[in-house]
Amino acid sequence: MPQASTQVPEGYVKAFFRPRSLSDAKYTYCPGCHHGIVGRLIAEAIDELGIQDRTVGIAPVGCAVFLYQFYRVDFVQAAHGRACAVATGIKRANPELVVFSYQGDGDLAAIGTAETVHAANRGENITVIFVNNQVYGMTGGEMAPTTLPGQRTTTTPEGRDVRLTGYPLRISEMLAQLDGPAYITRQSVHDVRHIQMARRAILKAFRNQLEGKGFSLVEIVAACPTNLKLPPPQANRWVAENALKYFPLGDLKVKGG
C-alpha cells in the first residue's frame, strides 16, 4: 500500500491514492487475503458518495474484527453473528446514519443466520458486505457453513463429508427468495475485472441505502490463502475453479429492476 508520504520521483505523477476514509493503519490480514481488497472497495464507495461523516461500520468477530482501525468512520464492534441486529439498532435509533456491516461466512451464515435472515426480511435499510472465504480464518481454519464438499479444513481433515456435515449454505440464494431485500448480489475479487464489478456492486449497495431502498447485501466469494495453504495466485485460481462453481456470480435479486 502506498503511504501518503510516498515520494513521487521526478517526471512521475501519483495516480494511486489511499481513499480518504481509509486510515493510515496497516492491515492485519495475511498476504494475498481478499479482505484487503474488499476493505478498499468499501472506502472508495464511501468517498465517492461523500458519506464519511455519517457512516457507521459494524465490525464482526473474525479476521475483520480490527476493521474499525482501518477506516476514518465511526465503528461498533458486534458480538459474533449479531452485526445485522446491531446495525438495526443503530439505524432505527438514527436513520440519518449510513450503516454497514462487514461479516464473514461463519459470522453471517452460521451463528448469525437468524439475525441476517430477519434483518433482510424486514427490509432493514442497511448495507451488508458478506465475505465468503469458505473457512473460519481467525480461529485457525475450521469448517465454515460455506466450506465446499470434500474441502479439507482443520475440522474436516479428510475433506468435508456432506453426509455428516451437510452442504455449503448458499445464503444469498435463500435471502433472494424473501420479499424484504432490495438487492442481493454475489461478486468476487479474484481478478481485476471482477474487482471492478464488485466495486460497482458495493457502490450500489450503499447508494440503495441513501435512496431508502432497504436491505442490500453484497456477497464476495473470497480467498483465504493461509488456510487454503496456497500462494495467493493459486488461491485466486482456486476461487475461480472451485468456489465459483458452487457459488455462481451475479445479481440474485434487484428490487424493481
Binding site: 458486534a78 441486529a85 446491531v86 439498532g89 443503530i90 435509533a93 437468524a114 439475525e115
Partner: peptide
C-alpha cells in the same frame, strides 16, 4: 421493534445504545 429472538433484541439495544439514545 419486535425482534426475531431475545438474542437479536439485546443486540439491537446494543446498537441503539451505541448510537446514543
Amino acid at each position: 421493534l419486535q425482534a426475531e429472538s431475545e438474542v437479536a433484541a439485546i443486540n439491537m439495544v446494543y446498537g441503539a445504545a451505541a448510537a446514543g439514545v
